[in-house]
C-alpha cells in the first residue's frame, strides 16, 4: 500500500524542503520506491535542493492539465533510482492546482507501485498547503525551537485534524510526527532556546527527529545535494536517524546534549 506523507509547518523558512529532500532520499536509500512532489506552485525549489533543476521538462500542473503524462514529468534522481521528483510549476497560476487533479496523480503513482509519496507543502494555509495535506496518511510537522514556528505548527496540526480527507471521512486520523530543525543544544541547555522536550510537550505529538543547526545545510543547497548525503555530518546523521525511526527502528536522540564529540571519537569514528 502506498503511503502519502505530507511535510508541512505553517511557517516558512523552517526547513520543509530541506527535510522533504533528505527524508525522501533516505527512504529511497533504504530501497523504498519514493516520489517527492513540490506543492509550492509558482515558487518551485525542491528541484534545486535535489540538484535536478536542469532536467525538469514538465511539471505537476502540466500533468494535471493533461499537457504531459506522469512518467514524462517524473524526474529520476541521478544518485538513486528509487527516487523520483515531480517539480512544481514555476509559471502557471496556482489556481490550476485542484483536488481532483491531485487525486488523479496520486492514483497513478499508486498504480506505478510507489511505496511512498512525499508532499513538500508550501508555507501558509492557502490552497497549496491544504491540498498537500488533503490525502495524507502521515504528517511530518517541521518546526524550529522558536515561538512563532511552534505556534504555526500547532495551527497546522489543527488544520490536519479538520481538513484532511481522513478527518472529514472519520477514518483513522493522520499519524503525526514532529521534526525540530536548526537545534542548538548548547543554547537550549543554557536556557536561551526552547529545548526539544519543551517543543515536543507543547505540540504533544511524537518526536521523530532533532536536526542540529549546521553549516552543512547551506553547503548542500549550494550544491544541490540532500543533507542526508553529507557523509558523517551531524545534520546528515540526524536525518538518517529520523528516516530509520520513521521505518520503525529504535534510535536514541543524538546531538541534543551540547557536549562536543570527544577527540578520540572524532579520530576513530563511533
Amino acid at each position: 500500500m502506498t503511503q502519502v506523507i505530507v511535510v508541512t509547518s505553517g511557517k516558512g523558512g523552517v526547513g520543509k524542503t530541506t527535510t522533504s529532500a533528505s527524508f525522501a532520499s533516505g527512504l529511497a536509500m533504504r530501497g523504498k520506491k519514493t516520489a517527492v512532489i513540490d506543492f509550492d506552485i509558482g515558487l518551485r525549489n525542491l528541484d534545486l535542493i535535489l540538484g535536478c533543476e536542469r532536467r525538469v521538462v514538465y511539471d505537476f500542473i502540466n500533468v494535471i492539465q493533461g499537457d504531459a503524462n506522469l512518467s514524462q514529468a517524473l524526474v529520476r534522481d541521478k544518485r538513486n533510482e528509487n527516487l523520483s521528483i515531480l517539480a512544481a510549476s514555476q509559471t502557471k497560476d496556482k489556481e490550476a492546482l485542484k483536488e481532483e487533479g491531485v487525486k488523479t496523480v496520486f492514483d497513478q503513482l499508486k498504480d506505478m507501485g510507489f511505496d511512498y509519496i512525499v508532499c513538500d507543502s508550501p508555507a501558509g494555509i492557502e490552497t497549496g498547503a491544504l491540498l498537500a495535506l488533503r490525502f495524507a496518511d502521515q504528517a511530518i510537522i517541521v518546526t524550529n525551537p522558536e515561538v512563532s514556528a511552534v505556534r504555526d505548527a500547532d495551527r497546522m496540526l489543527g488544520i490536519i485534524d479538520s481538513k484532511s480527507l481522513r478527518a472529514e471521512k472519520g477514518l483513522e486520523p493522520v499519524k503525526e510526527h514532529l521534526v525540530i530543525t536548526r537545534y542548538m543544544p548548547k543554547r537550549a541547555n543554557k536556557g536561551e532556546m526552547l529545548g526539544h522536550t519543551d517543543v515536543q510537550e507543547l505540540l504533544n505529538i511524537p518526536l521523530l527527529g532533532v536536526i542540529p543547526e549546521s553549516e552543512v545545510v547551506l553547503e548542500c543547497s549550494n550544491q544541490g545535494t540532500p543533507v542526508i548525503l553529507a557523509n558523517g555530518s551531524p545534520a546528515a546523521r540526524a536525518y538518517d536517524d529520523m528516516v530509520a525511526r520513521f521505518l520503525g527502528e529504535d534510535r536514541p536522540l543524538k546531538f541534543v546534549n551540547g557536549d562536543a564529540t570527544p577527540l578520540w571519537k572524532r579520530l576513530f569514528g563511533g
Binding site: 515561538v147 511552534v150 505556534r151 500547532d154 495551527r155 489543527g158 537550549a188 543554557k190 536556557g191 536561551e192 532556546m193 526552547l194 529545548g195 519543551d198 507543547l202
Partner: peptide, 18 residues
Amino acid sequence: PSAKIARERLSLVLAHER
C-alpha cells in the same frame, strides 16, 4: 532564562487557540 518565558507564553497562547 528566556526559553522558560517562551514556554510559558506558548503554553498560554496554544491553550487559548485550541
